[in-house]
């Protein structure tokens, strides 16, 4: 028993030492600025691409990184920022888990003289200072999505939206979507009616259920706009289950590999591509510029683009990854 116990203690200590030791060497090098990064999550290919781009650009600029994720928990992210402040990082880059609740932490970083930047999701709390916010132009993405829907179903029809209204970026997307629809309605006289708007929580399983209900309630639906890829894929599954693949068109926003594949296979009509690589790169560049005393614009918007079946067929990402 005692040997077992000792072995267990040994293994646990090793696990801790391994985990903590790995990052240790390069952090003691005080000649490189350390950037504390807290993302929304790591379990979404958007944020994985974002984090890769952040790592690559940080390497180029000579920054060390501490990269963690709040995993949708505002309290956890608050703790991570408090730890950054104790660590005295040179700058902080955030994707807030909650645009308001993060305010108290940002205030603390401000008081400690640590400049704060945000990527993808903005801070909406009052009385805090954010040097620069780098994000997809979500409003423009929403407008593009509306264009894609019109393109898919022609001048008239009934559509539904799978929403996730808790998140600021999604609010902008749906606002852009509605503005474009209204504009088209006035200008070109298209007769598009949004008959249903349900929350899919931004995740596949909930979007699937929401889309199922939507299809039940509105059997004559022509298209569904899903505010991100997991939602769009959930919608596709619901449409397939209802046997309505021929009738109902889907438009999503994101450009995850799985979403792109669905576009290639004709299951999703079009995706509005975000470019997380550009967001990550520009965010780190903004930090570097600011630290060397350059003026940085308070908002850096990264444009999105429409991605249709013909784009998917030429997409190198799909040629290599099946």
């Amino acid at each position: 028993m005692r040997t077992l116990r000792l072995a267990l203690i040994g293994v646990l200590t090793l696990a801790l030492v391994q985990a903590c030791g790995k990052k240790e060497q390069n952090q003691n090098d005080s000649s490189r600025p350390v950037i504390g990064v807290s993302l929304l999550t790591m379990s979404h290919s958007f944020f994985q691409d974002l984090s890769k781009a952040i790592k690559a650009e940080a390497e180029k600029q000579g920054f060390d990184l501490i990269m963690v994720a709040g995993e949708f928990d505002p309290a956890r992210q608050q703790n991570q920022i408090n730890d950054f402040i104790v660590k005295r990082v040179t700058a902080i880059l955030l994707c807030p888990t909650d645009s308001r609740a993060i305010g108290t932490s940002v205030k603390k970083a401000n008081a400690a003289g640590i400049p704060v930047f945000t990527a993808d999701i903005a801070v909406l709390a009052e009385g805090v200072s954010i040097v620069s916010h780098v994000a997809s132009d979500n409003y423009q993405a929403g407008r593009l999505a509306a264009k894609a829907v019109l393109e898919a179903i022609g001048g008239s029809g009934k559509i539904g939206i799978i929403d996730h209204p808790e998140v600021e970026s999604v609010i902008l997307r749906t606002r852009g979507f509605m503005d474009e629809l209204n504009e088209q309605r006035e200008k070109n006289g298209v007769e598009i009616e949004v008959v249903s708007r349900l929350s899919g929580g931004g995740v596949k399983d909930k979007a699937f259920k929401a889309a199922e209900d939507m299809l039940q309630a509105h059997p004559d639906l022509d298209a569904i706009f899903a505010i991100n890829d997991p939602s769009a894929l959930g919608v596709v599954a619901a449409i397939e289950k209802a046997g309505k693949s021929a009738r109902v068109r889907v438009v999503g926003i994101d450009g995850m590999p799985e979403g792109r594949k669905a576009v290639r296979d004709g299951k999703i009509y079009a995706e509005i591509l975000q470019h997380p690589q550009d967001i990550g790169r520009r965010a780190i560049q903004a930090i570097a510029a600011y630290l060397s005393g350059e003026e940085v614009p308070p908002k850096i918007l990264i444009p999105t683009s429409i991605y249709r079946q013909e784009d998917a067929k030429k997409d190198p990402m799909l040629a290599t990854a099946k």
């Binding site: 646990l12 903590c20 990052k23």
Partner: peptide, 20 residues
């Protein structure tokens, strides 16, 4: 807190915490 201070990645943090 210790893992945050030493820059352990989020995924690894979960594994270590569970093991502990």
């Amino acid at each position: 807190n210790g893992m945050n201070l030493t820059g352990v990645e989020t995924y690894t943090q979960k594994v270590v915490l569970g093991l502990v």
